[in-house]
Computed example of a mutant assay.
Amino acid sequence: MTLLAVERIKLLTTRSPWWCALTALVLTSGFTALVVGNASEEFPATVATTQFAYSFGMAVIMVLATLAITTEYRFGTIRTTFQAVPNRSAALLAKTTVVAVLALVIGEIMAFASWGLSLLLQPEADLALNGTADWLNVAGVGPACALAAVVAVAVGILVRHSAGAISLVLIYFLAVESLVPIIPSIGDDIYKWMPFNVLHKFVTGDGASNAGRVADAGAPLSTSTLSPGWALVYFAVFAVGLLAIAIGTARKRDA
């Protein structure tokens, strides 16, 4: 508990988490206002469309998570941390836990803020959370952001440099996976198992909350063949596995 308290203080007494949280909220709310505010009979507002911009907020949260660890390497405070806590695994797990919890909270705030804003913009639309699919579409954003933050921390531990780690995380998240389907013959099959495509399946499901929405009115659905529950497990295993590799690497090299 002491390690968690220390990491919480270190994280929340810097400016970057607060600026990243504000940026994530502004980005998602802004894009939601554009999409839902322009809804029409042809492109109706649904629960799914209220979360159209969650991936933009997730990208900012991943930047926050990367900075949480790489700034320690940049300023050399990681050496002090490892001197105070010789068990590097415990120290890094504590930091990852704090970052993941913060990402969960930010993710839920931006998801429900987008949903609430949509209710104000389209009071006549059917935006009630009536079933599991609707709740996953909104409340599922928080857990998705938490696991994405774990991946970002792992990359930060491996790369250690802020610019390099952030570039790697964002390029992969925003570009690399989307380019996989263009690989001849096998691209689509590979893409079904790409980590963030599978995570997207957890949030959007099979489109059960998209009733009345045409395809162009919201973000594309995941092509993963897994159920939402197994999609979450799949990405969690990927995130924990990458973190384990990162911690194992950090234990073997100089701080």
Rank of each mutant, 00 (worst) to 15 (best):
L93C: 13
L93A: 13
L93F: 09
L93H: 02
L93P: 11
A94Q: 11
A94K: 11
K95L: 08
K95D: 02
K95G: 15
T96N: 07
T97W: 11
V98S: 05
V98I: 15
V98W: 06
V99M: 02
V99D: 08
V99C: 01
A100W: 05
V101R: 10
V101K: 02
V101W: 04
L102E: 14
L102K: 03
A103Y: 10
A103R: 11
A103K: 10
A103N: 11
A103E: 05
L104P: 00
L104N: 06
L104C: 12
L104Y: 12
V105R: 11
V105T: 02
V105I: 15
I106N: 04
I106R: 08
I106L: 15
I106T: 14
G107A: 10
G107T: 05
I109W: 06
I109C: 11
M110F: 06
A111P: 04
A111T: 11
F112N: 13
F112H: 09
F112M: 07
A113T: 12
S114L: 09
W115D: 07
W115P: 00
G116A: 14
G116R: 12
G116L: 11
L117N: 09
S118T: 08
S118Y: 03
L119H: 11
L119E: 08
L119P: 09
L119A: 03
L120D: 07
L120W: 13
L121Y: 02
L121Q: 03
L121F: 13
L121M: 10
Q122A: 15
P123K: 14
P123M: 07
P123W: 09
E124N: 12
E124P: 02
E124D: 15
A125E: 03
D126Y: 05
D126E: 15
L127M: 02
L127T: 10
A128C: 06
A128M: 07
A128V: 07
A128Q: 14
